[in-house]
Nucleic acid binder design. Sequence first.
DNA 1: GATATTTGTAAAGAAACTTGACAAAATGCA
DNA 2: TGCATTTTGTCAAGTTTCTTTACAAATATC
Lengths: 407, 407
Amino acid sequence: MKKNAETANVHSFSEGEYTTAVLKAIENSVAKSRASLARHLGLSRTTTSTIVSGLINLNLLEEKSLLREGRGRPGILLDLDSSIWRAVGAEYHSGSWAFVETDLRGSILRTGSLKVAGRGPDAFLDCLAQGLAEFRRNVSGELLPAFGIGVPGLVDCDRGLIIRADDLGWRNVLVSEYVEKKLKSKALVINRNRGAGLAEARFGGGRGTHQIVYIGIGTGISAAFIVDGELIHGSSFSAGEIGHITMDKAGPLCACGKRGCLHVYSSGTAMARMAAALLSEGKESGLKNKKNQREPIDGEDVCLAARAGDRLALECLGEAARQLGLAIANIITIYNPDKVIIGGPIGSIDSPLIGYVRKEAERWAMPHAFDAVKIERAALGESVGALGGACLVLDRKLSLASVVRSK
Amino acid sequence: MKKNAETANVHSFSEGEYTTAVLKAIENSVAKSRASLARHLGLSRTTTSTIVSGLINLNLLEEKSLLREGRGRPGILLDLDSSIWRAVGAEYHSGSWAFVETDLRGSILRTGSLKVAGRGPDAFLDCLAQGLAEFRRNVSGELLPAFGIGVPGLVDCDRGLIIRADDLGWRNVLVSEYVEKKLKSKALVINRNRGAGLAEARFGGGRGTHQIVYIGIGTGISAAFIVDGELIHGSSFSAGEIGHITMDKAGPLCACGKRGCLHVYSSGTAMARMAAALLSEGKESGLKNKKNQREPIDGEDVCLAARAGDRLALECLGEAARQLGLAIANIITIYNPDKVIIGGPIGSIDSPLIGYVRKEAERWAMPHAFDAVKIERAALGESVGALGGACLVLDRKLSLASVVRSK
DNA sequence: GATATTTGTAAAGAAACTTGACAAAATGCA
DNA sequence: TGCATTTTGTCAAGTTTCTTTACAAATATC
């Protein structure tokens, strides 16, 4: 497809509609060879061949084995070329920056981290730029010239800034601007939880599904809604903020000033508070030891104890699941997703939580919608937030790779 | 754009990507003249001119006045041509079929209705086919060869059937198949409430917004989620069924078998039940007269009485709004829409309901999301459901018109 | 009234896609 | 085994779509 000179990118290789479609079809495994691509996209085999050649030249695709299926000459299996291009993503989490380097298929090749020295957005940004500069030095291939960055708080993805992060007390942190100035490379910013959801949708359990809901549980709770691989941002970038839906108008006071938010029942913070309260009532639990060590109990401790069978911890999880299950039930009824993925530092733990949630959701969701949904634990590991950042870069691999090669 | 012969539509006129884009740009008023279209779509003025000529030839666009803005030669204002093509939509509602004829801009030119004689899906379908056959005879222009049909219940839009309509006790009603056989014309089927939401999004208060939520309140409650003009169907076509989200696990029993559904608090049925209960307690109200007439009070009666200032009716509305407002607050927090449109037979009445809901929603929604949303009453009138059907036809005006003209 | 600016169209050329043909590589059947 | 059948991938030639360049028409500004 040709473009007007006023807005055109002048490259040796076309970035047309069909080129994107070919890449997507291969990514989603809906087509495997040139001929099946042609059938799937309604293009001639010839054109498909030309497009594929271009993508192979750009090292975005590679030919693999032969496809022996049915009779006739076997096709050549095509897949993303994982040998050349690299994406770098970052995520800020509990005082540190985590970095990942991935190939085009989203496989993590290398990780890194850097603890932020100091407080406030300046130290936060400074450490990010330093960490990225260091991390990109050791990239094992050709770097796609952009960084994807997962950060806490409400993010304006268009302008690349944190509108506000209430936990940290920050407002209007210009992340993209800072990184782009320091590193002379494009920076794409996303809420870290939404990024994790995107990563799960693309590379985790969400592969091949149309509508997924990712629910990230850590100290807080938030969600990501993904329709056909695209994140729903909302009109002011707050779609998915389920932590502050009201479960009970007369419930306990939440930090946000309202009462009975999901946050006060089912977040890691809530689990920890509940456990501490029960312990101070004198109930028996393996968590006592931890308490004696003067380090406060957190949500992860509770989940791990529950996994080990601790009765007090199980009680806390059950209580959290009662409200979380109801919230998920209502989301399933409202939104009718294919899949609900439970992740985040707490949600990823192989604890009884997901079983409780599933049972509760089944009880309250509309049966038709519940029958269509699978509720699963997140498939990806710890670096999923930074991987979410890398997703943003990988989404643009075609244009990024073209820019590099046209130089 | 050329298509492979295997899947191609052989027409005199191209239905390419850009042609669709030109139509959409004009519909959404993002561009007005050939030159502004060219800039907006990144095309040359020449190509844009060619595409526009084709659309004018097909009577989809027309030239209107000159655009005198700034200096230079004035452009020619383009708009949808409302003089030739007609779309027909239908909706089933309380025992009758309603029909509308619209022009390309969604203006209603003519309405009609037909009462269904008999019960059950056979009479329902028979009457639909009869009514459409009669209604299309008097179309005032050229008919786009498809019918858009809004029906109650859970609808499989791909296959054009009612999966189930619990209120009526029906299952697997093959609407498209029947209509297409009887009328030799394509039939597009949608849930009537979702259709109404689509109509409001396209032609009502939702014009120009990105994410809208339409909430239809009649005897039941359901919603439609529309992102960038496209309806979210969900994985099994039940996205938007908010009538059966659980507001209170210990609430009153709902017809669906669960407790405390939104339906039992805020539907028209619920309002009527509440009013009847208060009356039987001996409370004073203008609704008494109605009751004496041995015709049961319904939700509309309550809303109309409330509008007139009746205290008992106002109490019922306030009670309904308390739960509805909370539900909407949570939807706003979760989904962060630009606009929430309250419609349906009950929601469309200019009663105090919307004021109550707004107040309640403000109280419980996350402030950031609430600040970004407008809560409004539906702008379109009674025939909105059938207009929703017509929307489905108008969405395909390009290909439908091409098919007709290529004959 | 002259100049600058913008619009819409025409003719020629470039780019993208298709058609038809053919060699290559497999299967299926005699 | 051999031969017909099927399917893939590519080449050359042709068609369609879009762009570039050029120009007349219609307005605002000075």
